[in-house]
Design a protein around this nucleic acid. Structure first.
Lengths: 162, 162
DNA sequence: TATTGTTATACTCTATAACTATA
DNA sequence: TATAGTTATAGAGTATAACAATA
């Protein structure tokens, strides 16, 4: 359980809310986005732990569901991690029987990664759990506020081609 | 230089833009926020490298400037990292003479961390550099769009007390 | 020659546990 | 007893370099 404990630190010292008291940080995109990202990532990590699945693995299962079987290298490009990192991630998923590697018959250098039925089932559960955490996290925003923020984030990602 | 290379991976394979092609991820707050956070963090990391300063260290210098001298433990609470991690961070900043530790005369267990003149000068340079990276990162958004997103992020952070 | 997957290795960031000095 | 700082250690996540198999 290598969860960080971002929440507990400050909860008992609410007067030290860094956003309110450090004006510069309240205007820093890097601070605001990364701090928010850390909070939701921690919560999703904790919520998915019993499956067990990490947020990163959830992302990979989602890509496989949407795009069908992919080679490890293609998967690592879509997911923006190094192919050497992907080896270990797929090792873990295969060990839990959420995916299987199969030789690509048309290019025997590559392995195609397939979702297993068990992987699909776990994916469905994980999506529900992540959705619930997300709803709680986004609770302070109106539907319109989140939709506006979501579209802005997609604009940023599209523009920077990632 | 242990920078990740999020940009380069996909730039030569633009058709594999994961946001556009994986519908589930385009609605995932965790994915969108963390991916955006990673991009801006990488860019600020690269831009601050010559100072040298990390984004995390920049945050600490900003807190010290806004709040005055703080103990390491107080600083670790405001910045939401463990006090044992803070030891190493302050070690690094002190080694570059951006801060100094001084015994707190009213509680001799604690060290107060002070910004040095050199630290202030570096902070000023770093803020300018980070601002430029931020402006480039936010370029696809209108002023109103970023302001709306900024207020939403602050709402999220305030609500979750971090 | 170039690419895919792999292994070995290392770096960064973070945490936990146990210690010392002080309260 | 409790807290501040420290040290030693470990884990997660990521990268680079070198290699074998295949194209």
């Amino acid at each position: 359980m290598a969860m960080t404990k971002l929440s507990e630190h400050v909860l008992d010292q609410p007067q030290e809310n860094s956003v309110e008291l450090v004006p510069g940080l309240a205007h820093s995109a890097g601070f605001l986005i990364n701090r928010s990202g850390r909070i939701i990532r921690e919560r999703i990590t904790a919520a998915l732990e019993p499956l067990p699945l990490t947020p990163q693995e959830l992302g990979i299962l989602r890509i496989l569901e949407a795009r069908g079987p992919l080679s490890q290298h293609a998967l690592s490009r879509v997911h923006s991690i190094d192919r050497t990192t992907m080896v270990h991630v797929i090792d873990g998923l295969e060990h839990r029987e959420f995916v299987v590697r199969m030789r690509n018959t048309s290019d025997r250098r590559s392995h195609l990664v397939y979702l297993t039925p068990r992987g699909r089932k776990t994916l469905a559960r994980a999506i529900k759990i992540a959705q619930k955490v997300q709803d709680e996290f986004l609770a302070p925003l109106s539907t319109e506020e989140w939709e506006s923020m979501r579209l802005s984030l997609i604009k940023l990602l599209s523009h920077h081609r990632l």
